[in-house]
């Protein structure tokens, strides 16, 4: 099945498969979660110690601290892999479709002729993994931007060019 050549008027019959993100994104998300966790747990530790010193009660603050630790550990090890599995994007004719979300699922469909501009973004951690994300902007209001994270840096640039080419193609 070659979806790119599917005729536009009958897009629903020949649907291309959703593509996954680059698997390296799982590790990227873990690193990000780890950094946030360290910061949060550090702040929580300070809070626990100051509350404990002031009131001389340690039990509940300590329980709270451990709950937070548990939550962060779950987020660190379980969440990124699940989130990766839920992510998908595809170009179906002239429409980019993304899906994501474990509990709160969201599908976003962007007619590419509505593309106002595209940002190719890669932060320092992303760069060290060789990853980049695409931010697609429309003239809309509540959902004016759609993001595709965790792409291989070269693939992201290629995808951007492809999307812009489809969007700019005015032979509608």
């Amino acid at each position: 099945m070659n979806p790119a050549e599917a005729p536009a008027p009958a897009p629903l019959t020949l649907e291309p498969e959703f593509r996954s993100l680059d698997p390296r994104v799982i590790r990227l998300w873990r690193v990000r979660h780890a950094i946030t966790s360290v910061v949060l747990l550090g702040m929580a530790t300070i809070a626990v110690i100051s509350v404990g010193m002031a009131t001389n009660r340690w039990l509940w603050p300590a329980i709270g601290w451990h709950l937070l630790l548990l939550l962060r550990v779950v987020l660190l090890f379980w969440y990124p892999a699940r989130s990766y599995k839920s992510w998908g994007y595809r170009i179906d004719g002239k429409v980019l479709e993304t899906k994501r979300g474990i509990w709160f699922r969201i599908h976003q469909l962007l007619p590419l002729s509505r593309l106002q501009h595209v940002d190719l973004h890669s932060g320092p951690i992303e760069r060290s993994f060789g990853l980049a994300s695409l931010l697609l902007h429309t003239a809309g209001t509540q959902h004016a931007s759609i993001v595709v994270p965790g792409l291989d840096a070269r693939e992201a640039a290629r995808l951007r060019d492809e999307l812009v080419a489809i969007g700019g193609d005015d032979g509608v």
Partner: peptide, 23 residues
Amino acid sequence: VQSVVVRQTPFDRRHKVCTLIVD
């Protein structure tokens, strides 16, 4: 129409429904 969004909360899933948003 700028984009079309389909959302499903865990409660929605139990009822097999979604929210459709036209932006």
